[in-house]
C-alpha cells in the first residue's frame, strides 16, 4: 500500500467522528513520523477543509512536524519542578552524549514532579536521573 492509500484509510477510520482532524493527524504523524505538505493536502481534501486550515492546525501543535526526523528522541522535562531538582545542570552532558545521533527535545512536564529530573524515551519514563543515568539513557536510546 502506498502512502496516499494509507492516509485515505486513516481518514476513513475517523471520518464518522465529531472533530476528526486531530485523531487523523495523530495517526498520520505516528505512521510516517511527520505530516508533510502532501499529507496536509490529502487530509484537507478528505475532510472538505482548505489546505490553510489543515496547515494552521499542524503548525499549531508541538506534536506534529512537517518533516520526519530519523534520530531517536529523548524528551527531557525542563519545567519548574525539574529545574528545582537540578535538571539544567544535566543538559550539557546529555547534549554531548547525544551528538548527531539522538535528538534531545524539551518537554514541559511529564507529571512526575516529585521525583525529577525526568525523561521519556518512547513510552518509557525515567525518574531520579543524575548525570550518569541520563547520559546512559541517551547512549542507549
Amino acid at each position: 500500500m502506498n502512502n496516499s492509500a494509507r492516509i485515505d484509510q486513516i481518514i476513513a477510520t475517523h471520518a464518522g467522528r465529531e472533530g476528526p482532524l486531530l485523531p487523523i493527524l495523530h495517526d498520520v504523524q505516528k505512521e510516517f513520523g511527520c505530516v508533510d505538505a502532501e499529507a496536509e493536502a490529502q487530509i484537507a481534501h478528505g475532510l472538505n477543509l482548505s489546505r490553510a486550515e489543515v496547515h494552521g492546525v499542524v503548525s499549531f501543535y508541538h506534536d506534529f512536524t512537517a518533516a520526519a526526523d530519523p534520530r531517536a528522541v529523548v524528551q527531557i522535562c525542563r519545567a519548574e519542578a525539574c529545574k528545582a531538582r537540578g535538571v539544567e545542570a544535566l543538559i550539557g552532558a546529555a547534549e554531548a552524549a547525544a551528538g548527531g545521533r539522538v535528538r534531545i527535545s524539551t518537554v514541559y512536564c511529564l507529571g512526575l514532579c516529585s521525583v525529577g529530573p525526568n525523561a521519556r524515551v518512547g513510552s518509557d519514563l525515567h525518574a531520579r536521573l543524575d548525570e550518569a543515568a541520563l547520559v546512559k539513557l541517551v547512549q542507549s536510546a
Partner: peptide, 24 residues
C-alpha cells in the same frame, strides 16, 4: 481525545477548539 502538546489547550475554550479539530 488526545491533545497534541499545546499547554494552552488546558484553557477551556482552547480545549474545546482542539476537540473540534481547530487550532487551540
Amino acid at each position: 481525545r488526545v491533545g497534541a502538546g499545546a499547554y494552552v489547550c488546558g484553557e477551556e475554550t482552547s480545549l474545546l477548539n482542539s476537540i473540534e479539530g481547530k487550532r487551540g
